[in-house]
Design a protein around this nucleic acid. Structure first.
Lengths: 329, 329
DNA sequence: GGCACTCGTCGAAGCGCTTCGACAATTTTT
DNA sequence: AAAAATTGTCGAAGCGCTTCGACGAGTGCC
């Protein structure tokens, strides 16, 4: 293994000079810098990560805690992971993967042993047991999702309130007077992940502002037909539907079509869903930028590592993409 | 931060003794061990990962390279990842996530800097550019998937040959005389990932052995209807179908039903697919144990880290689960 | 009773890097 | 022209751990 002292001899300087060339923490003459860089390349030198971590008290690794629960949409998680890893690399950091079932111990382990410099937690719940630990840890963290009490924490999430509102506004602008939001399965509302409630609130607020009649109904993907039938029975004038429930999107489309409604002629259909799904089905949608969320969360983490204090709450706007499940404006 | 010398003073022993208690590399009296363990708990001591890596030349971290390509089934990847991470933790190791687009440089970086002790590569292709690097690296690696030339490498994958054969045999045993394997999109065969070919080979071999007429047809999920129509037109006597193409499973089912065939009465349908999909659609299937593949690959890696030489090739058997898309035996 | 072992523990060296203080040489300020 | 500040480099200390050799105390054997 080639070490820093090898590079130093080869370049005719001291090891500390090599270190300063690499870190840029002290000024180095151009000539010296070039000689050192040449030696590094010539010898194929790579700093030893452990030695570096020991001496600098920085591992340049962040932990990423991924959810395991069923009911989450795996491709979205994966996109966020990809975004986070890619972004971390851009900041010259690596990503250590933790699963949620390592729980509180896992966090304490990787933080306590200085394996990682910071922690990114995906899929935070309203009353997450990890919150107190994250607050007490000596390493910065960023949460994806908002807990009930985000005091002292840095959180980021999609702006579901705005997404819900955008659905209602768009449907209202199309001239619909009676619209519905079909949401997550009842269990999700009960677990209180928060996002389902926020979409609903936005939808209802915007509908009220526009003077449009709005109903909200949870929906289990396995009972899409039932949901569609119920809605149409109770609200015969229903002509605009927003769906915030990925697995239920296709069943719901099928269910509405089965009642004889044509989309978009008789029914405007808009989905809050990732782009790939919406594209495949050619649905007007509120896109959920998963990869960007991964990237942005890492950016926040890096700010904290740099000693800055980013805003405690970040809401990522989504944008409405018109496709063919709503009439052309 | 509490360090090993703090524990040592607290327990009234030398630091080296604490280290030996932790590593078990020298015998320690029960009494001393207990005192040391008590001090560790009392002080909340955690060995510094970097210091440990530096002194022991072992980071206790393995790299996991995940694929990014489109066309791979994300939930399966995630399951393998989960299996790998969980298993690694059982061996007291952590997992560093690399994306495939870090490529060769990424491997050299994490290996060269001693960030990781070993490397697990998912989704290896027939003529993968990373193969020479992996061979030349000074750290052990395990590949998930088989390249054209696996010399000097340790590889593991599902046994698709056996899966294909099992399909043909099962269909033959049910009495079908004319059967079909509907495979991956043409592009997959062209890329030469190998697994598609192996399934096909097993299917054809077993069919020949049973004296059953077998056809194989690639299939793009977006053209399922076409595939079904073609097959039925060219082979009117077709009564047994195996599908090795997850996204196409549902479209194909729909397509066959649209032709008037009832499953399983007129047509036996068997899928090579992960359990969750097969369960949801209640299909007889060859299950693909993704999480187990993750676990087993880590087990192989650990063997190599222990200085053993595991077999160069491991094929993971899959098992046939009868559900209601084939007639009860 | 002496010799050869084993057992349990300790001290010290060293893993490869960063960083602090020092210092000579140069540049800027007065 | 002298004093002060800046620049570029070096040496040495030290980050927290593992591991090697040493050694005293106990054990078994002839």
């Amino acid at each position: 293994m080639v070490k820093i002292s090898d590079v130093a001899s080869h370049a005719g300087v001291s090891p500390s000079t090599v270190s300063y060339v690499l870190s840029g923490k002290r000024s180095i003459s151009d000539q010296t810098r070039r000689r050192v860089m040449d030696s590094i390349r010539a010898l194929g030198y790579r700093p030893h990560a452990g030695a570096r971590a020991l001496a600098s008290n920085r591992s340049n690794v962040i932990a990423l805690v991924v959810p395991l629960r069923s009911g989450i949409h795996v491709p979205i998680v994966m996109q966020m992971v990809i975004g986070a890893v890619t972004s971390a690399r851009a900041y010259d950091h690596d990503v250590l993967l933790l699963t949620q079932d390592e729980g509180v111990d896992g966090l304490e382990r990787v933080a306590g042993s200085a394996l990682v410099d910071a922690i990114l937690v995906m899929d935070v719940e309203l009353h997450d047991v990890r919150l107190p630990v994250l607050r007490s840890l000596d390493r910065p963290s960023v949460l994806i999702g908002f807990p009930a009490d985000p005091t002292g924490l840095t959180c980021i999430d999609w702006d579901f309130e705005a997404a819900g509102a955008a659905c209602a506004e768009y449907l209202a602008d199309l001239g619909h007077r009676e619209i519905a939001l079909i949401g997550a399965p009842p269990a999700v509302y009960e677990r209180g992940t928060g996002f389902a409630e926020r979409t609903k609130a936005g939808f209802q607020r915007a509908a009220a502002e526009r003077g449009v009649h709005a109903v909200v109904r949870p929906c289990d993907p396995d009972h899409a037909r039932e949901a569609a039938d119920d809605l149409l029975r109770d609200h015969p004038g229903l002509t605009g539907v927003a769906v915030h429930n990925e697995p239920a999107v296709e069943p719901l489309l099928a269910a509405f079509r089965a009642t004889g409604r044509r989309v978009p002629d008789d029914l405007s259909f808009i989905a809050i869903a990732p782009d790939d799904l919406a594209e495949r089905l050619d649905l007007t949608s509120i896109s959920i930028p998963a990869e960007e969320l991964g990237r942005r969360s890492v950016a926040l983490l890096m700010e904290k590592l740099d000693g800055h204090q980013p805003p405690g709450a970040t809401l990522l706007p989504s944008r409405l993409v018109v496709r063919s499940s709503t009439p052309a404006a």
